[in-house]
């Protein structure tokens, strides 16, 4: 059933910006840019998916189908994760290209290196944790939920930029060109992945619980 719902998500719920905004990860090829901001654009795409879903009565349509309410939440999470992983794969490609084309340090935060993927995991994990439980508490107020998610995301991005200048772990080890300190960066990615998976799991369960209790009027 989840497979059929994912098909529904892909065929009926994807907004055109779901393809365009994640491509802005190409900003990694821009010199001196706060690269984690490109992860925000994907979160904006998630907002547009949920917003157009509301305008298209997606949830009402889905609830008339012979599916469990909780599975609708699962399918939406899978769709978003699919886009996120596609963007992270693209980020990997652009980080590699950046190393070849623009091999100079970034003056606006983290260098374009492997640790940026780890930052992506932290960004998406935090966004899931703030946005989805709020969204599934009231699917009509998608804008409010997005504002909360975006605010949390920008605080995280700001902290990460500050850490690149203030914390030796960031300044001397993570904020360095590849392949320097590759082991530490891989470890950072693994910690990020762990955070991403655990926060997504918490967000998913909380969202299912809240959506189950929600009255659709």
């Amino acid at each position: 059933m989840i497979g059929k719902l994912l098909q529904k998500e892909l065929k009926l719920c994807l907004h055109p910006t779901s393809f365009l905004l994640p491509l802005l990860v190409a900003l990694i090829l821009t010199p001196n840019y706060p690269y984690p901001v490109s992860y925000f654009y994907l979160c904006l795409a998630v907002f547009f998916i949920c917003l157009t879903g509301r305008e298209n009565h997606d949830i009402t349509y889905s609830l008339t189908l012979p599916v469990a309410k909780a599975d609708l939440v699962t399918a939406r999470f899978l769709l978003v994760m699919l886009i996120e992983w596609a963007q992270l794969a693209l980020a990997g490609l652009f980080i590699w290209l950046h190393g070849i084309l623009l091999p100079q340090p970034n003056a606006a935060g983290m260098d374009a290196n492997l640790a940026l993927i780890g930052e992506g995991f932290f960004c998406f994990g935090l966004f899931h944790l703030v946005f989805f439980p709020s969204y599934y508490k009231n699917v009509d107020k998608v804008g409010i939920s997005f504002l909360k998610g975006a605010a949390a995301l920008f605080v995280l991005i700001l902290v990460e930029i500050v850490l690149c200048y203030a914390l030796p772990l960031y300044r001397n080890i993570l904020d360095t060109p590849d392949p320097l300190n590759l082991g530490a960066k891989l470890l950072f990615c693994a910690v990020g992945l762990l955070f991403y998976l655990s926060s997504t799991w918490v967000a998913w369960r909380l969202s299912q619980k809240r959506f189950q209790q929600l009255d659709i009027r």
Binding site: K11, L12, E55, N56, H57, D58, T60, Y61
Partner: peptide
């Protein structure tokens, strides 16, 4: 309610 106003009926 009008579901998915911009999608074709076939879709």
């Amino acid at each position: 309610m009008s579901f998915y106003a911009k999608k074709k009926l076939r879709q």
